[in-house]
């Protein structure tokens, strides 16, 4: 229910975000409250060398706020991390995961506008999935994304991280994630994937949310594991029940 609500809110919020005409003053205050501890004053970042100064490898992971500089990441990154609920993060070192967004729309716009003002950076992209090609999208997704996100976007595992399922991702968020490469995801520049290719990928990911399940109950689009569960817990259970109906059980005594 909550997720539905959040998605609903996101859908409503999208056109406004594109305008990026938020209240920077509000953004500045919120930044001071939620972000500055890790991202530093004016989003200058806190790198390990500055904290200890003895080389990056020796820094204990959760000792202090350590986070990248936000100068120059632009509205694109701010929009992605805030509207997915990835930020703020409970503590440093965690993989950011999709969470309910804690800010309301004016606050979001303010924060995004503030982060965008920290340096020249990319704007929030406007993908046009309707201009993309579904078949090109599937091919590109298989080549670039399926290794981690699974070929139908059901999410997966990579040593040390969980590539999320893409069922909740909006078109804008997909386009943003491709450019940012959040957490350990690779980053694809416009040279690696052109905007029109991104349109196609977005179109495929949207399709993969409810693909052609002509076979019936989809049981998760991940293949043999749920199939095995159905074979044993539905099929074999029903057939053992038939056996018990036909054959006799133990006589007592």
């Amino acid at each position: 229910m909550r997720r539905l609500l959040v998605t609903g809110l996101l859908a409503l919020a999208l056109p406004a975000a594109a305008a990026a005409a938020g209240d920077q003053q509000l953004g500045y205050r919120l930044f001071g409250q939620y972000c500055v501890a890790c991202h530093g004053v004016a989003g200058s970042g806190i790198a390990p060398a500055r904290v200890i100064g003895t080389g990056p490898q020796r820094v204990p992971r959760q000792q202090l706020g350590l986070a990248p500089s936000l100068q120059g990441v632009g509205a694109l990154a701010a929009d992605f991390y805030l509207r997915t609920g990835y930020m703020p993060l409970q503590h440093v070192g965690l993989q950011p995961r999709r969470k309910p967004v804690i800010f309301d729309e004016p606050q979001l716009e303010g924060l995004i506008a503030y982060v965008a003002s920290l340096g020249r950076g990319p704007k929030v992209p406007k993908p046009h999935p309707e201009r993309g090609s579904l078949s090109e999208g599937m091919q590109l997704f298989t080549d670039h994304c399926a290794g981690c996100h699974q070929v139908v976007g059901e999410g997966g595992y990579v040593t040390g991280a969980l590539p999320p399922p893409l069922k909740d991702a909006t078109s804008t968020q997909i386009a943003e994630a491709i450019r940012i490469g959040p957490y350990v995801m690779p980053r694809f520049s416009t040279k690696a994937l052109s905007p029109s290719q991104v349109n196609s990928i977005v179109r495929y990911v949207r399709y993969a949310k409810s693909p052609d399940d002509r076979g019936g109950w989809a049981i998760g689009h991940v293949g043999p594991i749920p199939e095995g569960l159905v074979a044993w817990f539905l099929g074999m259970t029903a057939l053992v029940a038939c056996c018990i109906a036909i054959g006799r059980r133990f006589r007592r005594g």
């Binding site: 992971r61 990579v158 040390g160 959040p182 350990v184």
Partner: peptide, 27 residues
């Protein structure tokens, strides 16, 4: 096929770069 590249956005907090195979997660 090794089609997974673990590419950390911010090295100090995150796992190091790695190439991963999705069949049995050899890294």
């Amino acid at each position: 096929a090794i089609s997974l590249y673990r590419a950390p956005l911010f090295q100090p907090d995150e796992p190091t770069p790695a190439l991963v195979c999705p069949c049995h997660y050899s890294t």
